[in-house]
């Protein structure tokens, strides 16, 4: 136990007050994200991540949002296990034909009002997989999408910016 406490003490807090490697404009993103969540979701934004057929690259970077550098939970953003608890669907991958039914059901199970954010180039437009016999391409071909976060995969910072964009958009 002492070893654990000692390691925690030595590691200290690595959470970055703001993303450090991007442009100066990113300075305010964290703060605006916090404000956006506070204003629109009373300080608590529940996200349900749905993989509609991705290669798992986007999932790795969404995971990174929860590591101690980004720690999006400090903005009131948390990932939930059921679409029924979610305010926002974070959808990755091209919409595969085999996931279309499950995706539509997940959308239907998410209570209104809800936001849909398509994550990654595949979710934006089909990406490297495009439209084919097995892929319907971008998520917008299956569901109404509020915001798109491009990148293959998008970095955790890009994900934070994209979430912000979704929050600051006027309601549909």
């Amino acid at each position: 136990m002492l070893r654990i406490l000692n390691k925690i003490r030595k590691t200290s807090i690595v959470t970055e007050p703001r993303p450090t490697t991007g442009e100066a404009a990113l300075d305010e993103i964290s703060e605006r994200l916090r404000e956006g969540v506070a204003r629109r979701f009373r300080g608590s934004l529940a996200i349900r991540a749905v993989d509609a057929g991705s290669c798992n690259g986007c999932e790795l970077e969404i995971h990174a949002l929860n590591n101690s550098f980004y720690d999006v939970e400090r903005f009131g953003i948390h990932f939930v296990a059921s679409p029924r608890h979610a305010d926002l669907l974070l959808i990755t991958g091209p919409a595969t034909v085999h996931m279309e039914t499950a995706l539509l059901r997940t959308y239907a199970a998410t209570p209104d009002p809800k936001l849909v954010v398509a994550v990654g180039d595949c979710a934006a437009c089909g990406g490297e997989f495009g439209c084919s016999y097995a892929s319907r391409g971008g998520i917008a071909n299956v569901l109404p999408v509020d915001a798109v976060i491009k990148g293959c995969p998008p970095t955790p910072q890009a994900l934070m910016e994209g979430l912000l964009e979704a929050l600051e958009k006027p309601r549909r």
Binding site: S54, C55, G57, E59, T96, H98
Partner: peptide, 29 residues
Amino acid sequence: GYTHKGIEKIAEGRDAFGLARLAGRVCGD
């Protein structure tokens, strides 16, 4: 089979660089 994206089919007709890009997305990790 839920993430079946037809990778083998859409590989057909690609050039070498296109195939390398696709191969790099068979499995992102």
